[in-house]
Simulated scan of single mutants.
Amino acid sequence: MKKLYARMMKAACPIDPETMASTVPFLQHDTIPHAMADHGARQIFFFVDHQDNTVFSITIYDTQEDLDNAMRESGSEFRFASLAKLGCTALDARAFEVVAGAVNPDAPEVDFAKIIPPINN
């Protein structure tokens, strides 16, 4: 059985509707392409927790080596500059082995890049 690996990164961020209107497009069109350029990156999703004003991401990688390389990015200047641009502060970065899961074959594919327009600066 093929193993998968995951990186979780979490940040404290302003979650008000006005801020999220610029944060979500920035994540989709700037942060996600950067993260998906990592060797072995398979999927990435961002989540918002309105209860504690945090945003976190989970990125799935093909190999332990891919994950280890990606974990070095968790302390990169790109990450901290991107977070600062959004008014966010890094809280945590963790590495995991994926041990169970499923994807419903009937689930519709969601193309976030098409439904989230980029911000025009």
Results as ranks from 00 to 15, higher is better:
residue 1 M to R: 06
residue 4 L to I: 04
residue 5 Y to A: 01
residue 5 Y to E: 03
residue 5 Y to I: 02
residue 6 A to S: 10
residue 7 R to E: 08
residue 8 M to E: 08
residue 11 A to S: 15
residue 12 A to I: 10
residue 13 C to F: 14
residue 15 I to W: 14
residue 16 D to P: 12
residue 19 T to H: 15
residue 21 A to G: 06
residue 21 A to I: 04
residue 23 T to M: 08
residue 25 P to D: 08
residue 27 L to Y: 15
residue 29 H to L: 09
residue 31 T to A: 15
residue 32 I to D: 09
residue 32 I to C: 09
residue 34 H to M: 14
residue 36 M to V: 00
residue 36 M to W: 04
residue 37 A to F: 00
residue 37 A to D: 12
residue 38 D to G: 01
residue 38 D to I: 00
residue 39 H to W: 02
residue 39 H to V: 13
residue 40 G to M: 04
residue 41 A to D: 07
residue 42 R to T: 10
residue 43 Q to D: 09
residue 44 I to K: 10
residue 46 F to S: 13
residue 47 F to P: 09
residue 48 V to K: 14
residue 50 H to V: 08
residue 52 D to G: 00
residue 52 D to H: 07
residue 55 V to W: 09
residue 57 S to G: 15
residue 59 T to E: 06
residue 63 T to M: 02
residue 66 D to M: 04
residue 69 N to V: 00
residue 73 E to F: 14
residue 74 S to R: 02
residue 74 S to E: 10
residue 74 S to T: 15
residue 75 G to Q: 02
residue 77 E to N: 13
residue 77 E to V: 12
residue 80 F to S: 13
residue 83 L to T: 06
residue 84 A to N: 12
residue 84 A to D: 14
residue 84 A to T: 14
residue 89 T to H: 04
residue 89 T to G: 02
residue 95 A to I: 02
residue 96 F to R: 03
residue 97 E to M: 03
residue 98 V to F: 07
residue 99 V to N: 03
residue 99 V to H: 03
residue 102 A to S: 08
residue 103 V to T: 06
residue 104 N to G: 00
residue 105 P to N: 04
residue 108 P to S: 00
residue 108 P to G: 00
residue 114 K to V: 03
residue 115 I to C: 00
residue 115 I to Q: 00
residue 117 P to G: 02
residue 118 P to T: 04
residue 121 N to S: 10
